[in-house]
């Protein structure tokens, strides 16, 4: 029961999905859509487990007054407030995502700027990563550096001002060698993914249950 049933469930689900792709006739054709809806429903329930795990972890910190308990309290307060406000939005406006719902206020003034700022941090991180990547210590790293510099210069006006070579070379690198390697990697990865999926469906790969 503990191992066989899950293996059968995985086998059937995976096989039905593949069949659904090739067989449009009822009942197979619409199976993919149906299974994806089921997946979303299961994911919805599981979200409770997730939020519960988050609450427990931080409630424990607060209860035991561990280091940083104040931050954990802020996390819990933020979470609870958002959920309450979401429920209020649902009741009062019919949808938490209604433009006047306080839920959207929280979204607009916390999540949106936080997301945008984290994204902006990327510019700094990419600078520090470049510093390391560009200290070409071997021929492989030198290749990376040269191609990166050409592409960068090719994409800004200064590059074109120095020489027309940069925009032209930039385009060529992106369209030819860059594309070639990307395709090769994607073909290989896709084969690997298909093979792993096959192993999972057939129960050969069961490290997720083992």
């Amino acid at each position: 029961m503990k191992r066989t049933v899950p293996l059968i469930i995985t086998f059937l689900t995976g096989t039905f999905l593949v069949m659904s792709f090739f067989v449009p006739h009822a009942p197979f054709g619409e199976l993919e859509q149906r299974l994806l809806v089921w997946y979303a429903i299961v994911a919805g329930f599981t979200m409770l487990l997730g939020v519960d795990s988050l609450i427990r972890a931080h409630a424990r910190k607060v209860a035991r007054v561990r280091e940083g308990w104040g931050f954990s309290l802020a996390l819990l307060a933020g979470l609870v407030a958002t959920v309450i406000v979401g429920v209020i939005g649902r009741v009062q406006f019919g949808s938490p995502f209604h433009i006047q719902s306080p839920f959207m206020f929280i979204y607009t003034y916390t999540i949106v700027p936080l997301q945008a700022t984290m994204f902006a941090l990327l510019a700094f991180f990419i600078a520090s990563a470049s510093y390391r990547a560009f200290r070409a210590r071997n021929w492989v790293a030198t290749l990376l550096l040269v191609s990166a510099v050409i592409v960068m210069l090719g994409r800004i006006p200064i590059g074109a001002a120095i020489s027309q070579f940069f925009p032209v070379a930039q385009e060529w690198i992106m369209d030819v060698p860059q594309l070639a390697a990307k395709r090769g990697i994607q073909i290989g990865a896709a084969l690997g993914a298909v093979s792993m999926s096959l192993r999972i469906i057939l129960g050969i790969e069961r490290s997720y249950l083992s």
Binding site: A141, S147, A148, M152
Partner: peptide, 11 residues
């Protein structure tokens, strides 16, 4: 090819 590609993506 892979390294030239990575460099290009990076830039």
């Amino acid at each position: 090819f892979i390294m030239v590609s990575f460099g290009a993506s990076f830039g």
